[in-house]
Design a protein around this nucleic acid. Structure first.
Length: 426
RNA sequence: GGAGAGGUGGCCGAGCGGCUGAAGGCAGCUGCCUGCUAAGCAGUUGAGGGGUGAAUAACUCCUCCCCGGGUUCGAAUCCCGGCCUCUCCGCCA
């Protein structure tokens, strides 16, 4: 959520943002409500001031043995009036925040203005597209032939959009998780956390998934808990409602979780294979930083995620997303897209974003600057480091061999018990 | 699931109808003092919002003692509902 004062003082910038992002929200309505609210507030405050003075006078008179009945009756009437005005203010407040929660963050100057993914800017590439002296297969054919992923069993168990890994497929998944976590914890300085996979509604509001995306979330109605769509939610909320110490910043967390997404409205897209599934594994990187450092921190976050792909020897590109494509809460966002030879296209495996103070304001995460003084909102960032399912797609398709087996990249072998190839699993 | 206890400022912790935005301690800040230890002395320090204002200066007002209602002229303090935490019992991977 943006600062209401900021919206009040910069309505044009907010409207420009909405336009650049191809979104809409009733900014003028918000400003009108805000004005109305302040008028009422002034009235209520005057009355409260009067009431406070009278109450203490009454207190004194009573202690002197008098009973100012007249005054008490008068105050009773004023108290009622105050209640009425406060109620109106409450209603306006609710309307105001309803609108404010739907206003997205202001993009950074370095974000290209654009209306669709065509306007995203590729900032760099790493590696090269692998070449084959045979027709490369898609990951589901490879996985099926090797018996390492059983989509049929998964859909019998849970319906479409799920995968069941078996044998070396399951081990590969586990190996990737450990491999990634080890790099981030030992080399990049992140603290590993293993958070709950279900969270309260207020957490989802805090990170910005709600109220906009309730449709996309799995919800356990009896307890009003949500299955997390990303570890960003529980990890960012670790410090919800806290004032952090300046010397503790920056704070880096990484964590593995499963992620759950309903993918409502995307039926018919990517129905086959691992590219779009309702449950997938992901390593997430989350940072809490001082405002003045957040854009440097974004760059290093991207590099931390990139290292995973580099060590796995997978060709990828980094894309600076345009205004239409960056997420609601972010000011700037880089996607990492890995090359999938079987599909002959790039797949998004990481989205690294700076949220500035947007999530921090919603979630109440502040810090006290060294020089003392007022607590300020921290900046939060996060990025996948990286998403597993699509990485498995790229891995299988990149390292497939003519005989159907798959070579295991060097860096991963220690995690696969020294194995250098995936052979057929029975 | 059953029975209790509790949620107060950055932290700990008193208060249990008006004198409390809140004692005391710790931490922080500012002076002073001291050439010995993360010592001593004094002062100071909560958050959000409104108004006046060029002001992130100053002044002033309102609100906030988990959240939401209620009682009362007046509530951190009493009553009701909710959320959360802890202890004991039960159940259980």
């Amino acid at each position: 959520m943006l600062d209401l004062k900021f919206i009040r003082e910069n309505p044009e910038e907010v409207k420009k943002t909405l336009k650049d992002r191809g979104m809409d929200a009733d900014v003028d309505g918000l400003l009108k409500l805000d004005k109305e609210r302040r008028n009422l507030l002034r009235k209520a405050e005057d009355l409260k001031h009067k009431k406070n003075i009278a109450s203490s006078q009454i207190g004194k008179l009573i202690s002197q043995g008098e009973e100012p009945k007249h005054k008490m009756a008068e105050m009773k009437a004023i108290a009622q009036k105050i209640k009425d005005i406060d109620k109106q203010v409450g209603e306006i407040d609710a309307k105001t925040t309803r609108i404010a929660l739907l206003i997205p963050n202001i993009p950074h100057d370095s974000v290209p203005v654009g209306s669709d993914p065509e306007d995203n800017i590729e900032t760099r590439r790493w590696g090269e597209r692998p070449t084959f002296d045979f027709q490369p297969l898609s990951h589901w054919d490879i996985a099926d032939a090797l018996g390492i992923i059983d989509f049929r069993a998964a859909s019998k168990i849970s319906g479409r959009g799920f995968a069941l890994y078996r044998g070396l497929g399951a081990k590969l998944e586990r190996a990737l998780i450990n491999f990634m976590l080890d790099i981030h914890t030992t080399k990049h300085g992140y603290t590993e956390v293993f958070p709950p996979f279900m969270v309260k509604r207020e957490c989802m509001v805090g990170t910005g998934q709600l109220p906009r995306l309730e449709e996309d979330m799995y919800r356990c109605e009896a307890d009003d808990l949500f299955l997390i769509p990303t570890a960003e939610v529980p990890i960012t909320n670790i410090h919800r409602g806290e004032i952090l110490r300046a010397e503790d910043l920056p704070i880096y967390y990484c964590g593995y979780t499963a992620c759950f997404r309903r993918e409502a409205g995307s039926y018919g897209k990517e129905t086959k294979g691992l590219v779009r599934v309702h449950q997938f594994d992901k390593i997430e990187l989350v940072k809490f930083v001082k405002p003045e450092t957040s854009y440097e921190e974004l760059e290093s976050l991207v590099r931390d995620a990139e290292e995973i792909l580099q060590q796995l020897g997978l060709h990828y590109r980094v894309v600076n997303l345009c205004t239409a494509d960056i997420s609601f809460a972010s000011t700037k966002c880089y996607d990492l897209e890995v090359w999938a030879p079987g599909k002959e296209r790039y797949l998004e495996v990481s989205s690294c974003s700076n949220f500035s103070d947007f999530q921090a304001r919603r979630a109440g995460i502040r810090y006290r600057p060294e020089k003392g003084g007022k607590a300020e909102y921290v900046h939060t960032l996060n990025g996948s480091g990286i998403a597993l399912a699509r990485t498995v797609v790229a891995l299988l398709e990149t390292y497939q061999e003519k005989d159907g087996r798959v070579t295991i990249p060097e860096a991963l072998r220690p995690y696969m018990g020294g194995l250098d190839r995936i052979d057929r699993t029975r």
